[in-house]
């Protein structure tokens, strides 16, 4: 197992490359999910405001 992580002494390079790839791809996905939630929340808020305004009249 530790042999696998050592990658013949090149662990820093192999895992440095794979680590950055994993990190960026995960960040991209998380950021996209967060953005989708923010947009929906904002639109929902806008609609509630509009509905409330309509009821008042």
């Amino acid at each position: 197992m530790s042999d696998f992580f050592a990658q013949g002494g090149y662990a820093f390079f192999v895992w440095g490359a794979y680590g950055m790839t994993a990190l960026l791809l995960v960040i991209e996905v998380l950021q996209l999910r967060a953005r989708q939630r923010t947009i929906r929340a904002r639109l929902g808020r806008l609609m509630r405001i509009r509905d409330a305004g309509a009821n008042d009249q």
């Binding site: 991209e28 996905v29 996209l32 999910r33 953005r35 989708q36 947009i39 639109l43 929902g44 609609m47």
Partner: peptide
Amino acid sequence: ATSFMRLRGIILQRESESAWVRDLLD
């Protein structure tokens, strides 16, 4: 996958005034 996710966000943002988005949220 990621471009379609981003595309959905862009569509919602740009079409936020249209009727179908309101129906969707309802």
